[in-house]
Amino acid sequence: MKPVYLKTLLIAAIISMACTTKVSEWVLLNSFADKYRLVYYHKGDQATEVVTQHKELERWSETTNIVFKSEVKQAVSDPYYALYYGNRLFGEYDDSSSVKSINTSPVRDKVVEELLAGKLCVMLYLKSGNSEKDNQGLQVIKKSLDSSPFSEIITLIEIDRGSTTEKHLVSLLLNVESDLKEIDEPMLFGVFGRFRALEPLLGRGITEDNIKLLIDFLTADCSCLIKDNLPGVSILCKADWERPSPALVNVILDANPSLLHR
């Protein structure tokens, strides 16, 4: 496979037009996360305690990329909560307390922390459970990162597909593309901006070339094409994105201009 051919593997456009801000930085600063939709379906009357809980949910939703609303649905036997992204149903929940945990998890908190610290991206390695395949993929990733001039500003986090503490995150990641749930392969998600997960590299697609291209994408000048049609999917998370640290990618590029994409 010729290296120049591999350039075609970029997930979204990299062109050097007007903007010299890097993709990772521009998206973090300017691109709001897509909102999930949490709907409470009920027959009509809401008990006082439910109203109180929903006021709390509204406050809770202010720090999360989620919109909460109630809808009357006569066909409902018992009230419930449903979580959507676009037209896709993510999950259904019986009560508000189980809803409140869907926006946080240790890994998500860590990812948010790393992105706000100015990291280029976080690579989430979702292991398949097949240790041979998982180890093979992990070695490729580590080798790629070791040889990358941006290794210091990329955080690698491994997640077990069966993790109970990260079950919501795993579910969210497996919804980045519609058929991921049926694929028993390790997956590598590049996460950048305000928790935007790119379409993953899968199994044999986890190669050094593909990882390099993923990094290239994030370190390239941002373009209108990116701004118009941002690749990837927003992941549900709790975060305050208002005051991120300066992008560390600029420090590396300033010190090593040869790394600039021309």
Binding site: T8, L10, I14, S223, L225, R262
Partner: peptide, 26 residues
Amino acid sequence: GEEGNRMIAYNAVTKEKIWDKAVKYG
């Protein structure tokens, strides 16, 4: 997916590749 990052020029008569560049364009 329509990223511009490569161009190839061929001689249309000889069919030979004249150049093949990893260039970025928009």
